[in-house]
């Protein structure tokens, strides 16, 4: 088994699996990573097919530049949520699969007949100018020089176009730190909103990650203590989860009764204090604070 064959049979299944994974992944990031895998494998296939220049370009341009651009945009727009896999167009998925099967059959039938002889190989062609890169250069800069120049115009146009498309006019004056501070104080004066920083995430014996919310004195979660994207993806640990081990310990120490998770997070009320009153006051202060996350003006979001 030659190196070429080895590379093919090793990598081809990986590529197909990667491609299928790209289509099926629920998260865009996973799709991008699958695609990266396919592309790197493809680069190696190029190398096996006597195309060292394309091998390099594939890795540098595609995997290095284009896919990073994809990841960057995914970060900008897509990380918030998973894609729903419920199909909204009637019959779309069925037809797509049927057509895909038909297409692959036709393509295989057509392409399978395209080359009837064995491969000539590029050894001779590469040797003509002293190497693959030199041979490509001879073609690109002599025979296809006009096309090459046209692509330069295309790239310039694309760059300018991307800038034009993503450029936004500033419609309101930029708010600097000073004005923000003034606004906070004004908000405190007018609505009583807390001017200080939001609460920090919770720190417990078992958890200190950013997705661990702080608990309020009544045992409920202070939602402002975790960042908004995590909140929106409902990745916040629940009080039950956080308090379950402690409740278990209490139960073990008590020894005579089973731990009751439903009441585990509830602290015994102190004498003379109403739990409901205390909780209501805290909830109110949370509400005023929660609105702070929304005062970011639109142009600062992305």
């Amino acid at each position: 088994m030659s190196g070429q064959e080895l590379a093919f049979w090793l990598l081809a299944p990986v590529m197909v699996l990667g491609a299928v994974g790209m289509v099926l992944a629920r998260k865009a990031v996973h799709s991008a990573l699958c695609l990266a895998a396919v592309m790197i494998c493809l680069a190696i296939q190029y190398a096996a097919l006597d195309a060292p220049f394309l091998f390099a370009v594939q890795i540098i341009v595609y995997t290095g530049a284009i896919l990073m651009l994809f990841l960057f945009v995914v970060m900008l727009v897509g990380v918030d949520s998973d894609d729903s896999f419920v199909e909204t167009l009637r019959g779309q998925r069925v037809f797509a699969v049927v057509l895909g099967i038909g297409l692959v059959v036709l393509l295989v039938a057509g392409l399978g007949n395209a080359v009837v002889t064995g491969p000539v190989g590029l050894t001779e062609a590469n040797a003509q100018y002293g190497g693959n890169v030199q041979g490509l250069a001879a073609l690109v800069f002599v025979r296809w020089v006009w096309a090459f120049e046209a692509t330069s115009a295309l790239l310039i146009t694309a760059a300018v176009g991307a800038m034009v498309l993503t450029h936004r006019e500033r419609l309101v004056p930029r708010r600097d730190q000073r004005t923000r501070a003034a606004e906070r104080i004004r908000a405190y004066a007018e609505t009583g909103r807390h001017p200080g920083p939001m609460p920090t995430p919770g720190v417990f014996a078992r958890h200190n990650a950013v997705d661990t919310p702080a608990l309020l004195p009544d045992g409920s979660v202070a939602e402002d203590s975790v960042s908004a994207p995590l909140r929106s993806r409902s990745r916040i640990r629940t009080p039950e989860e956080l308090l379950a081990p402690m409740a278990q310990r209490h139960a073990e120490i008590a020894g005579d009764r089973q731990p009751d998770p439903a009441v585990g997070h509830q602290r015994d009320p102190r004498p003379g204090e109403s739990v409901a009153e205390q909780g209501a006051a805290l909830k109110a202060s949370q509400r005023t604070q929660r609105t702070r996350g929304e005062d970011l003006s639109d142009e600062e979001r992305i």
Binding site: Q92, F95, A96, L99, G100, G102, L103, L106, L107, G110
Partner: peptide, 13 residues
């Protein structure tokens, strides 16, 4: 896209 692929399929046939 579905229509296009169908068209491509017909041409290929």
């Amino acid at each position: 896209a579905l229509t296009m692929v169908a068209g491509v399929g017909m041409v290929a046939v």
